[in-house]
Design a binder for these strands. Sequence first.
DNA 1: CCCCACCATTGGTAACACCTTTCAGTGAGG
DNA 2: CCTCACTGAAAGGTGTTACCAATGGTGGGG
Lengths: 244, 244
Amino acid sequence: MGTERADTGAGHGASLHRSVLDALGSEITAGTLAPGHGLTLDGIQERFGVSRTVARETMRLLESMGLVVSRRRVGITVQPPGSWHVYDPRVIWWRLAGPGRDTQLRSLTELRIAVEPLAAAAAAREATTSQRERLLELAVEMRALGESGRLEPFMDLDVEMHSLLLRASGNEMFAALTDVVAAVLRGRTQLGLMPHRPVPEALDLHDEVARAVAAGEHEAAETAMRRLLAEVRDAMAPVRPRRR
Amino acid sequence: MGTERADTGAGHGASLHRSVLDALGSEITAGTLAPGHGLTLDGIQERFGVSRTVARETMRLLESMGLVVSRRRVGITVQPPGSWHVYDPRVIWWRLAGPGRDTQLRSLTELRIAVEPLAAAAAAREATTSQRERLLELAVEMRALGESGRLEPFMDLDVEMHSLLLRASGNEMFAALTDVVAAVLRGRTQLGLMPHRPVPEALDLHDEVARAVAAGEHEAAETAMRRLLAEVRDAMAPVRPRRR
DNA sequence: CCCCACCATTGGTAACACCTTTCAGTGAGG
DNA sequence: CCTCACTGAAAGGTGTTACCAATGGTGGGG
């Protein structure tokens, strides 16, 4: 359940430190290792049967993600969520895989609502010709797949479309969110939150976004994307029992 | 043997691997070490006069930021900008310190335009009473400092206000951008992109945002913040937009 | 109450065995 | 003579162990 090989980086095989990192990262972000909890290198060596070098590298990586701090004599201390680097792909992955997944999905969706409309507007201005063409193609294919109710391939196209828009925006900070958005879209289906059993409304809005961007109408693209995401957020609302 | 020690003044405790990390990170993000360029652990040891352990830990950290990949036999390869983790605080810092600083400021500002209006709206709903009070205080102090033309302390308050709003939004993804926004605001003054005296318009808009959030009027807060940021973007325009 | 000594724990160095991947060299076949 | 497949050596990261240095929390002594 938790540690299904988080291949977040450029994927090489399972190096030793990566599996240890995955285990500890998951536990910290899941709250199993509570903030303030102390670790030691010896403890890590012992627990995972690895050498000091591997334990140290793992610890450095955890530290660079803000999950722990390491101080002499006192050891390694788990940090509270506030200091986690929540834009780190691995952190996002762990949190989506653990409990609090719906909380995470919710805040990520809010981020999407903030970013994607502007990204769509920028894409309408900046996209290359081939990107615009691909966008229109995608809209057509999505409609076909959506109406025939094939959810998985539909999701793939959905991911591709949003990624394309983010990349075409010409803003590297937007483009860097493609993985996040992909994770949200995939996580949403996995969680069974998949709101649109491709509702016609969503299909129409995707179509509208694609057309507007392709035609360079940035205002239309922005508002269409905004409405699309409002749809997404509303469809997600029902699963809200959790308040902190 | 050029054993150099590079401390780019980034404050934290000057541990050995950190200074090496800083040096290499800066060079890669600055483009001095071009994508595709090859490094070796031996080379790093030699150049910085550090042990293999330190070289390895540095390399792991660079890899976790997407700046390099490490493969057996082939060595360490510098990655193109597209795979950098541009939300990592250190990457942002390096890029703001190096060339392409204005490009970076521009894309970060666009990100602010996307996020901060929604953050303000959320803050209007979610902020605690003391946060609302502090916001009003800040607006008053900012006006005083702004009208007397004291740029540095004005900037500090500016940073505090935007940080407060992001944290008060209740969305961890927004809150995690406080460092980014702080870096942008500070970078903007350093770059001389700020008018020597805050324009009255900006002061009024800060005031308006503060009042709206404090009063819980989320729509007013959102539009006020949007106008504030539009002002920021326009004030920034004069610097030549460089296209890559 | 303050100061100092102790020692647990990370920080850093060194030397080593191992495994994977690349690449050059070699030979056979066309 | 050219091409291609095989082969083996070397390059370079991966992982292990042992050891010393620095540091800061803790507790004991004044």
